[in-house]
Design a protein around this nucleic acid. Structure first.
Length: 881
DNA sequence: CTTAAAGCTA
DNA sequence: ACGTAGCTTTAAGT
């Protein structure tokens, strides 16, 4: 690691934010710097790149950035045309400046922006203050006026061509480049003029002539006093333009006595808000800059010197050596465990286990353990109460089928990283370590050396993450929700759910045959074959061949989605459309069935994997296969649910789901009296709301009114617009707006709540669930409307969806433990966001239902009841109610 | 190998 | 431009 030569010396880095951002904006092509959401980031990128370069090179102890606000009053008075010649500020520049300010806030670098004062003057003032405090001053500015500030102890970092190439302008460098001293530079600039600021100088006088004169007379005042002595055309021009020169000289003077809002000491570097910063870099899609920032800030943040240490050489104990080794580990010590676990289709295996604790590591080969060693290891992984892993769930599942049935985890660095940054795309150990410890990227392969390094890294990471959790008040969620629910999920995944494989195969055949029949009819309707699965080929048929009216545009053409096809059928009545829709429907069902068939284990069960770190709101997701999107809305789709059945020793499946949990949370969080009353009265919510909105009695609400209101209620939770509602209901925008207005006038507290949630999130930078789970949404301050509004809808939804997720997780933990404590053999198998599916052992249905109702309803204390519906049957479908 | 379009869930 | 959060499949681009 490179150290600054004089680590004790203090230095102050002053940055002219506006000039740097403006230069970056023009230096970098916008088309090469934009995010997937369309936000242009060239100025942001260039600025941050410059900033990191300056921080890396200068290692300042103090940093401050100044921005322009409004017009520079005294310069405009002097010269109304000041800067008038400049091209108008481009529209997407301002928004990028806001992004830069947000980034600086996350870096905890103070920003000074004073009304009517130019950034240069602020910097000149801080340069003087820094100098008076005996601190070295560096000024990063793209404005040459700053050269007049250069002196002993004050230098300017001026960007060359690229943004991260900064030239250091010392007194010597200024003299060499311009032939004048920094003190004379102002005079030279006044003589030469500045096109960019619309300040013309003396015609025919450039740097060289100006330097010659200034060196002869000392300074501008002396030069002007002797202007009569200067001969030739240049002398004539000087006398003719004397007033312009004097004006330039007054205008380009930087004020070093501006009233500034805080002292130099307030600019002392304190390290960034790492989570907010990381979320911003993610949003901006600055992967490389993000890593540079992590490397720059990471170590100084919270990791101690130990974090950079290399992993100790591992012990490789045989069975006999393992027993004393494990006995020698302090019961209070955190022990990191890393394995080479593999897990596929309900079958897992582990060959090697690495441990790290204190200053030691060890690697154990399971195959080489005689009974004594295996027993000791099993005891240790069961009994030690401070075990930490990274992504423990798959490893625990594999360990438990590899002779270590009681292996467990007390802490998980991946879950901690998720709670701190739930919007992150991935949580690979290497990435998290780099972000939190400033460790260099390591190679991925897990040879014998890699595994102990993984354990070592996890051990170093845990206290750093624990401190960050504490700081964000997330420790309670970590230990009270995520860790216990991880254990529950591991068990559910290992159990799997039984399927009737024969029925599954039959269904696949049936749907396949129907799909094929529809395809043939579709071909017949247009007289030729076409790949019905290709939107591109369909577009050719529909819009070119059949010349149907164009549908809504997509990135690559016109949509052929089901809504659009149904619409086209209404317009054209062409039979091709009907057969195409039927084919789509059946092929999708067949896909689902075939996909499920492939995942059935030898024991006839399907083992999904729940992802605990995939959804930014706190929800779970399910993959391989996804059992959270099994069809339910159509009759044919529900037949797939008939295939999920109780296993051999069970009598039924039981499902329990929360009734309208998100609307209940909305009622609770908003405190809306009408909504709360409706839930307390046990009313049919949508009928009740419909009555209010349409001004009729609840009993007189028609099914049509009810369905409109239902769509609106749910849409609201997601930030639905009047336009969206009108499209969904097939009504006019005005009618939709009228409905919404009426809704909000009846449930005013809901509107107030939704508005307040977004504003609070904008101020704090994150949303919170009832339990304090956070979601950072830096895009809330985006200048780009589309980006900002997307973040606003996410901010509306995250506390509600996330609170529901927290409640469900608490319920699952309670149900699992109640089933166990009751000595029951019934087992929880699946979770589908607001629903739990349990496999019921013979004779236990009554007790299981009681547990489900009690634990689910009791998982949160709301101002409205948490109703739970329960059903039982010989299949998932039959258990639905 | 990645992206887009489509469609399924809460 | 226009409702949140996910996963999987296929076609078609690189």
């Amino acid at each position: 690691m490179t150290q600054n030569d004089s680590p004790t010396a203090e230095s102050l880095l002053l940055i002219d934010g506006h000039s740097m951002a403006y230069r970056a904006y023009h230096a970098l092509p916008p088309e090469k710097f934009s995010t997937s959401t369309g936000q242009t980031t060239n100025a942001v990128f260039g600025f941050v790149s410059m900033l990191l370069t300056a921080l890396e090179a200068e290692r300042p102890t103090h940093v401050l950035v100044a921005f322009d606000r409004g017009r520079p009053a005294f310069r405009l008075e002097e010269h109304p045309g000041y800067k008038a010649g400049r091209a108008k500020t481009p529209p997407d520049f301002h928004g990028q400046v806001e992004l830069i300010e947000t980034l600086l806030e996350a870096m905890r670098i103070p920003v000074v922006a004073l009304e009517g004062v130019e950034a240069d003057d602020v910097l000149a003032t801080y340069a003087r203050l820094g100098e008076e405090a005996g601190i070295e001053v560096r000024i990063a500015s793209g404005d040459k006026d700053s050269f007049q500030l250069v002196r002993e102890g004050v230098s300017v970092l001026y960007p060359k061509r690229g943004m991260s190439d900064l030239t250091r302008m010392t007194p010597e460098a200024v003299s060499e480049k311009y032939g004048v001293t920094p003190a004379q530079y102002r005079g030279q600039a006044a003589l030469v003029g500045e096109k960019a600021d619309n300040l013309p100088g003396v015609p025919g006088v450039g740097e060289k002539t100006a330097a010659k004169w200034l060196n002869k007379y000392g300074d501008l005042e002396a030069l002007l006093a002797h202007s009569e002595e200067i001969g030739g055309k240049a002398g004539e021009n000087l006398r003719a333009h004397r007033e312009a020169v004097e004006r330039n000289y007054r205008v380009n003077r930087l004020l070093d006595d501006v009233e500034v809002p805080f002292t130099v000491e307030a600019a002392r570097m304190q390290g960034p808000d790492a989570d907010a910063l990381s979320a911003l870099f993610d949003q901006l899609e600055f992967a490389v800059l993000g890593r540079r920032a992590e490397a720059l800030f990471g170590v100084s943040g919270n990791a101690g010197a130990a974090s950079a240490q290399e992993a100790p050489v591992p012990a490789r104990p045989d069975a006999a050596e393992l027993v004393p080794l494990l006995e020698g580990i302090d019961a209070e010590a955190w022990v990191a465990v890393a394995t080479d676990a593999t897990y596929v289709l309900g079958l897992g295996a582990v060959d090697r286990i690495a441990l790290a604790w204190g200053e030691r590591t060890a690697v154990v080969a399971l195959s080489a353990l005689e009974p004594a060693g295996a027993t000791a290891l099993e005891e240790f992984l069961a009994g030690h109460t401070r075990l930490v892993m990274h992504d423990a769930k798959p490893q625990l599942k594999a360990l438990r089928v590899s002779g270590l049935p009681r292996a467990h985890a007390d802490w998980d660095t991946e879950l901690a990283a998720y709670l701190l940054e739930p919007d992150r795309r991935g949580y690979a150990l290497e990435e998290i370590a780099q972000a939190r410890l400033g460790l260099a990227a390591q190679q991925e392969d897990e040879d014998a050396d890699g595994l102990h390094t993984r354990a070592w890294t996890v051990l170093q990471l845990r206290p750093v993450l624990a401190e960050a959790l504490e700081g964000a008040h997330l420790t309670g969620i970590m230990t009270g929700i995520e860790m216990p629910v991880q254990e529950v999920l591991a068990r559910m995944e290992s159990r799997g759910i039984a399927v009737d494989a024969a029925r599954l195969a039959e269904l696949g055949e049936e749907f396949g045959a129907q799909a094929e029949a529809s395809a043939q009819e579709a071909y017949a309707a247009i007289g030729h074959e076409v790949n019905l699965g290709s939107p591109k080929q369909l577009q050719a048929v529909l819009f070119d061949e059949l010349e149907m009216p164009k549908t809504k545009k997509t990135k690559t053409g016109y949509t052929t989605d089901a809504d659009a096809l149904a619409d086209l059928f209404v317009k054209t009545g062409h039979p091709f459309l009907q057969h195409l829709l039927a084919h789509r429907d059946r092929i999708k069902l067949r896909q689902t069935v075939v996909g499920l068939e492939k995942t059935v284990s030898d024991s006839g069960r399907i083992h999904t994997t729940y992802l605990q770190t995939a959804a930014a709101t706190g929800r779970l997701s399910s993959k391989d296969p996804n059992l959270q999107n099994i069809p339910v809305r159509t009759e044919a789709g529900r037949r797939i649910r008939e295939v999920f059945v109780p296993g051999a020793d069970s009598e039924s499946l039981m499902t329990a789901d929360y009734s309208q949990i998100e609307m209940r949370i909305m009622a609770h969080l908003s405190g809306d009296p009408s909504l709360i009353m409706a839930f307390r009265a046990g009313e049919d919510l949508h009928a009740y709301v419909g009555g209010q909105v349409f001004g009729v009695a609840t009993e007189d609400v028609t099914p049509e009114m009810r369905s409109k209101v239902k769509a609106m209620s749910y849409g609201l939770v997601y930030g639905l617009s009047a336009y969206g509602l009108s499209k969904q209901l097939g009504i006019g925008v005005d009618e939709a707006r009228g409905l919404m207005d009426e809704y909000f006038s009846r449930f005013g507290a809901v509107r107030d709540y939704l508005g307040a949630v977004v504003e609070e999130a904008r101020e704090r930078g994150y949303t919170e669930t009832m339990d304090g789970r956070r979601r950072y949404l830096p895009a809330l301050t985006s200048a780009q409307r589309q980006v900002r509004e997307m973040a606003e809808r996410a901010a509306l939804n995250a506390p509600i969806q996330g609170s529901a997720a927290d409640i469900m997780k608490r319920a699952m933990i309670a149900v699992e433990s109640a089933l166990e404590a009751g000595g029951l053999r019934s087992r929880m198998l699946l979770q589908v966001h607001d629903e739990i599916i349990v496999e019921v052992a013979p004779g236990e249905a009554g007790q299981v239902e009681e547990i489900l109702r009690r634990e689910m309803a009791g998982a949160a204390e709301l101002d409205v009841p948490l109703d739970v519906n329960v059903g039982t049957g010989a299949s998932w479908h039959a258990a639905a109610h």
